[in-house]
Design a protein around this nucleic acid. Structure first.
Lengths: 233, 233
DNA sequence: CGGGCACTAAAAGTATGACGTTTATGTCTC
DNA sequence: GAGACATAAACGTCATACTTTTAGTGCCCG
C-alpha cells in the first residue's frame, strides 16, 4: 500500500502524505525542500512537485524563507481519496471509520431514494444481482466474496442516484466496507438481517418505491453505526 | 476570480483548471507540456507542477509518449474545493448547484441532529446570533448581509455536528448559498418561512432536541430544492 | 529604552539544458 | 498477415544557476 512504485514522485508523495496524516509531523512542523530531496535521494524537482500536490490537498503550505509547514488537521482536504486512504492506513483509523460511516448514513438513504426514481433497468438488474450475490456468500466464511458484492451493491445505488456528488462517494464507501470487513473477527458471518435489508432495498428500487428504499437504507445505516459502537466503544 | 495572482504556478493552474472543467478540452484531449509552457510563457518546471496538481485532482492523466490527456468527467475529484469553484464559475453552473444542493439536503439535517447533541454553549450562542442576524436582515434588500449570516449559521451547524466530514463541507455550503443569492433577482427578500425555520433550528439545537432539529433542517432543505426548481426548471 | 528602518541571508520560485525512460507507431522480415 | 524490431516523441529526472520574497537581525535615531 505504501509505494505503488510507479515513479519517484508517487513514492515520495505516498511516504510523505502517510507520515503527515499519521501525525508524524505535528501541525506547524516545517520541512525543507533540500532536506527532503536528500532524505529520499531524489532531485529538488521531484520534491517540489510532491509539495505542490500536498499543498493542493491543504496538508501543507509552502512559504518562502520559511519552508513547507504542516497545516492543522481542520484544514486538510479530507475528501481527497488519497488523504482518506492515508488516514485509514494510519493510527486514528477507528476515528476515521466512524466519521466516514456517519457520512454514509447521511448520504446513502437519500441516494437510495433517488435511485428508486432514476435507476435504469440495467442498474436494477445489477442491484438484484448484487443482492443475490450477498445472499449466496452470507454463510460459510466467504467474507471476501460477500464484501465484493456488498461494495458493488452500494456503488450501484450511489451511481443510480443520478447525483454526481453521491456517485463519487463510491470509493469512500468501498474503503469503509473493506476496512470494516478486514477488521472484523474473521469467523462470524455477516448479520443475516442486513442481508435481508439489502435485498429489500433492491426490491424497493426496482419497484420505484423511493420512500421504502430510503427507509430501509436508513436501517442499514443504523446497523452499521451500531456495529461500529460494538467494535470501537 | 481567475488569476489570484500569487505566482505563475497559481495563474497557470487556475486558467487550465477552469478551461478543463468548463469543457474547453473534451475528454481525451491531449495537452503537450512544451506547448503549454510556450502558451503561458513559463518554464516547463512550472507546467509540470501544474500538471501534477491537475493530475492529483484526476482532471488529467499524464502518460509518456502521449502527453497530458483530459480524463472523463466521472473521474474528476468533484469534492476538491478548487474543482467546485471552477465548475461553479463555468457553464454548467446550474447543474452543479443542483447536485450540491441535493448533497446539502442529505447532509445538513443529519448534521443538525448531531449538533443538538454535541453543540457547545458557545456554538448555541453563535447559532442564535446568526439566526437573529438573519431575521434582522431579512427585509429591505439587505441580501448581502442576510447571506453572510446564513452562511455563518450553516457553518456553525456543520461544525457543531462534531463530524469532521460534515464540518469540511462548510465551504461548499458557503459557495452554494453565495451562488444562489447572487443569481437571484436582487429585489425579492428571502422567504420569511425559511427565516423562521432557521430560528427554530437554533432553538431545537439549544434545547438538545435532535429529532426536531433534523426535521426542521430537512424542511429548509426541501425549500432550497424547491427554489432551485423554480430558478432552473 | 524603544521603535522603526535598512540590511542580510535563507529558503522557495523560476529557468534552462541535458539525459533517461517509456511506449505508440511504423517498418521490415518471414 | 503476424510478429519482431527500430525509431522517435513525449514525459520523467537531474543538476545548476539565477531570481524573488521575507523572516530575522541589528543598527540608528528619537
Amino acid at each position: 500500500m505504501t509505494t505503488e512504485g510507479q515513479g519517484l514522485h508517487t513514492h515520495v508523495l505516498d511516504t510523505l502524505g502517510l507520515a503527515i496524516t499519521a501525525g508524524a509531523y505535528p501541525q506547524g512542523s516545517v520541512l525543507r525542500t533540500d532536506e527532503v530531496a536528500q532524505r529520499f535521494d531524489v532531485s529538488r524537482t521531484v520534491v517540489r512537485e510532491v509539495v505542490r500536490v500536498l499543498e493542493s490537498m491543504h496538508l501543507v503550505e509552502s512559504r518562502r524563507r520559511v519552508g513547507v509547514t504542516v497545516r492543522p488537521t481542520e484544514e486538510w482536504n479530507v475528501y481527497d481519496p488519497r488523504v482518506i486512504r492515508w488516514r485509514l492506513a494510519g493510527a486514528d483509523r477507528p476515528r476515521q471509520l466512524r466519521s466516514l460511516t456517519v457520512l454514509r448514513s447521511a448520504i446513502e438513504p437519500v441516494a437510495a431514494g433517488l435511485a428508486a426514481h432514476h435507476a435504469t433497468p440495467e442498474q436494477c438488474a445489477e442491484l438484484t444481482e448484487c443482492a443475490l450475490g450477498m445472499v449466496a456468500t452470507s454463510r460459510g466464511h466467504q467474507l471476501e466474496g460477500y464484501l465484493e458484492h456488498d461494495i458493488a451493491f452500494h456503488r450501484v445505488v450511489l451511481n443510480a442516484s443520478g447525483n454526481e456528488m453521491f456517485a463519487r462517494l463510491g470509493d469512500v464507501v468501498a474503503e469503509v466496507l473493506a476496512g470494516r470487513t478486514h477488521h472484523r473477527v474473521m469467523f462470524d458471518d455477516p448479520d443475516p438481517a442486513a442481508v435481508t435489508l439489502h435485498v429489500q432495498v433492491a426490491e424497493a428500487v426496482r419497484e420505484g418505491d423511493a420512500v421504502r428504499a430510503e427507509e430501509i437504507t436508513r436501517q442499514i445505516a443504523v446497523g452499521a453505526l451500531a456495529e461500529l459502537d460494538v467494535l470501537a466503544p
